[in-house]
Design a protein around this nucleic acid. Structure first.
Lengths: 218, 218
DNA sequence: CGCAGGTTTGACTTCACTCAATCGGCGTGG
DNA sequence: CCACGCCGATTGAGTGAAGTCAAACCTGCG
C-alpha cells in the first residue's frame, strides 16, 4: 500500500510548466494537478481542452442517467491516459478515487503534434484503439457474464494491470458495482463466494489475493 | 425494403482492382466481396490483414464464450467501416446478416497511408474514436438500462443512423438479444410492450415505425 | 472509546430467463 | 392458385439470479 500525504488541499493544486510524457515518444509541456478523494477532474459535457495522465492514485470516469443510475466507464491507474476526446466535449466525468496526482497537457498541443509527426499520430490512434479493445472485452462482460464471472474477470484484469496476484483495491464496492453493472451487495456476495471457493483470499475488504487464476478465468 | 438478387453464390465472390474510399479522403485499391446470409467475413483470432466497408446489406461482429454464450459487438450498415485492428488478429468474428457486399482494402496500405499522410492518420484515429464513443454508450445501456430501455435505445439509434422513423430490421430477435444482453423472448416482449404503449408500430416483425421519440428516449 | 463509513449478510421481491406451446409469414410444390 | 411446411416471432407459465431493504459488523479515526 502506498503512503499518501497526510492532508490534501481543498481545491486542486496545480504545478505548471513541466514536460509531460503522455505516451511513448509524445512529450508535451503541461502541469500536474493534485486531487482529493471524489474531487472532479472534468465534468460530462465540459469542453475537452486537456488530455490527462495519472501520475499517482486512481481515477474513475462516470456517466449518470437522469434518475441517478450510474455507470463507471473505466478506472485509470498510474501511467494511464484519459480524457482524450474526438469531439468538443467530455462524454464522461472524471473523479479522483483517492488522493491523486494527474498530469495534464493541452489537447491542441496533442493534435498539433499528431498533425506534424506521423509517429505521434500513430500513438494517438493506438491510445484510442487500446481503449476500444478494453471496452470490447467489458461489453462481453456486461452483456453475457454472471455476477461472479464479472467480479472474477475484473479482479484478474486488475491483477494483470498491476502484474501482481496481490491487489490493492482503491475503489469501493459501490464503484465496482457501477463498473460491472451490479449492486454493491452483489459485488460483496460474489467476492465472498470466490473466497469461500478458495479462488481468492480477502485479508481485508480492500486487499485481494488471487489464489487460483484458472478458477477465475472460467 | 431493398430487392436482393434471387440467388447468391456458395463461396464469396470477389471483384478485384477497384479503388475503395474507406473514409473521407482515404481511398485505396481493393476489391468487393459478395456474401450470403450468415457467411463469415473473418473469424475471431484470424490474422487482421484487411479493413472492410459495407457496400450493401448488413454485417454483425460476434464473440463467443466457451459455453456458447454470444455477444454481438456491433451491426454495420452500408457506409460503415469494420475490421480495423491495432493488434495482429481480429478480436471478433464478422458475418453477413443478409445478402451483402463488402469492400476490402489491405491493412498494410491503410497503415502506409497513415504513416505518410497526417490527414489519413487523423481519419484513422477518428474511425477508432467514433467506434469508441458508440461503445461507451452501449456500455451504459448494458450496465444500467432495463430490457425495455435497451430495446428502445437500440431502435432510436438505428433510426438515427438511417435518418428515418421507419426502420427495416435486417437482424433477427436473437441477434438483437445477443447485442443487448437479453434473450430473444425478452426482446420480443419489450417490442410488444412498446407497441402496446403506442411508442412504436410493428407492421410486421422486421419493420418498426417510431411514433413517439420522447417516449423512447427516457 | 465511540462514531461514521464502508462492508457483509439475511430475507424477501422482482425482472429477465427458461422451457414450451402457438402463431404467422414466406416460399415451395402440388 | 392454394395448401403445406418451415422458421422466426410471439405469448404463457414457472424459475432463478440479481436487486432491494434492512440489520449487523468491521475498522480506521477523531
Amino acid at each position: 500500500m502506498a503512503f499518501e500525504p497526510i492532508s490534501e488541499h481543498l481545491a486542486p493544486a496545480a504545478t505548471v510548466g513541466r514536460l509531460i510524457e503522455l505516451t511513448l515518444g509524445l512529450s508535451l509541456p503541461g502541469s500536474v494537478l493534485t486531487l482529493s478523494p471524489d474531487e472532479e477532474v472534468f465534468a460530462e459535457e465540459e469542453e475537452a481542452a486537456f488530455v490527462y495522465k495519472v501520475v499517482s492514485g486512481a481515477v474513475r470516469t462516470t456517466r449518470l442517467l437522469s434518475d441517478g443510475r450510474r455507470q463507471i466507464g473505466a478506472f485509470y491507474l498510474p501511467g494511464d491516459v484519459f480524457g482524450l476526446e474526438s469531439g468538443p466535449v467530455h462524454r464522461f466525468s472524471a473523479e479522483a478515487i483517492k488522493p491523486t496526482k494527474v498530469a495534464m497537457v493541452r489537447r491542441s498541443g496533442v493534435e498539433r503534434a499528431a498533425a506534424q509527426d506521423p509517429v505521434a499520430a500513430r500513438q494517438l490512434w493506438l491510445l484510442a484503439a487500446h481503449e476500444l479493445e478494453d471496452l470490447q472485452d467489458h461489453m462481453v462482460l456486461l452483456g453475457r457474464k454472471t455476477a461472479v464471472e464479472r467480479v472474477a474477470s475484473f479482479l484478474v484484469k486488475l491483477s494483470q494491470r498491476a502484474d501482481t496476484r496481490v491487489i490493492d483495491l482503491p475503489m469501493s464496492r459501490n464503484d465496482i458495482g457501477d463498473h460491472l453493472g451490479l449492486t454493491l451487495e452483489t459485488v460483496s456476495r460474489a467476492m465472498s463466494q470466490l473466497a469461500r471457493d478458495r479462488a481468492i483470499s480477502l485479508p481485508n475488504a480492500r486487499h485481494v489475493v488471487l489464489n487460483n487464476l484458472s478458477a477465475l478465468t472460467c
